[in-house]
């Protein structure tokens, strides 16, 4: 029996299959026709690329749509899954910053990969992946080029809005200034505004080394650079930061299998 983790997010669904302690396959698909069909499609894709032959699966689902997955054996909270996933990848990590499409969550974890505390920002899109996507559109820059611009900036534009809509107005006012604020500075300012919200969450819990950053936004090197500057030390970023919650769910599935839970 193989352990599978499914992270059903608001934008993407991710599937990870474990064989023993190693991830043998993973897949990520955009949520299109509802959580369940998308999750099934992602799972099918992961199964095909894993070349598993008719193995039985034990599935743990997580994420905002995790409860909607009727074919999963268990649903777990995203916080628990993130903690397990990060601990697997970085056993020394004691804090996790997860910047997903719609939420930002900061966790404290212990040396066994258990959550000891967490704080979230889920009232406003500011500071999330959706916010970054909206800002990229306004700046007419692709998401993957945001980092390049940000890293070139010598200064950062002030974007103080704690609300996504107000922050957007500030960005627009920078664009229309005479002379306009350089694109690099605006984008670095966008990253800084996101980081300032995350720093607030980190300080609420008390910053502890090492800090792992996961979720899709962790792929943005500009954001990571500003965060590291604010923290004063390097953070840990996995190769596939969007997959960590699914990986954690798969680890929980494996733990259950080892305990004989079916």
């Amino acid at each position: 029996m193989k352990a599978v983790g499914l992270d059903v997010g608001s934008l993407n669904v991710k599937a990870v299959i474990l064989d023993g302690s190693s991830a043998v396959s993973f897949a990520m698909l955009t949520v299109s026709e509802g959580a369940e069909p998308s999750a099934r499609a992602a799972l099918d894709e992961a199964i095909i690329s894993s070349k598993l032959n008719g193995d039985e699966l034990y599935i743990v689902a997580t994420g905002v749509g995790g409860k909607a997955i009727s074919f999963s054996q268990q649903q777990k909270a995203i916080t628990t899954c993130l903690a397990r996933g990060v601990h697997y990848l970085f056993p020394a990590a004691r804090m996790v910053v997860d910047v997903g499409a719609e939420t930002t969550t900061v966790l404290k974890i212990n040396d066994r990969g258990r959550v000891t505390d967490w704080a979230g920002q889920d009232k406003c899109a500011a500071g999330t992946g959706m916010f970054l996507q909206a800002m990229a559109k306004i700046m007419q820059v692709s998401l993957k080029d945001m980092a390049e611009y940000s890293l070139r900036a010598k200064n950062r534009a002030d974007i103080t809005g704690t609300c996504a809509v107000f922050a957007e107005s500030e960005v627009i006012s920078h664009i229309h200034r005479v002379p306009p604020t350089p694109k690099e500075e605006i984008i670095a300012g966008i990253h800084a505004s996101m980081v300032s919200r995350i720093m607030g969450l980190l300080k609420r819990l008390g910053i502890e080394k090492e800090v792992a950053v996961v979720g899709g936004v962790a792929l943005d090197g500009g954001f990571i650079h500003v965060l590291e500057e604010e923290l004063g030390f390097k953070v840990l970023v996995p190769e596939n930061p969007q997959m960590v919650a699914a990986l954690g769910a798969a680890i929980l599935a494996k733990e259950n299998l080892e305990k004989g839970v079916r």
Partner: peptide, 17 residues
């Protein structure tokens, strides 16, 4: 549903300790 989500996460944290 938001309250439920947070409470469930918390109960899971307690259970997982």
């Amino acid at each position: 549903s938001e309250v439920r989500d947070k409470m469930e996460q918390f109960f899971e944290l307690l259970e997982d300790r």
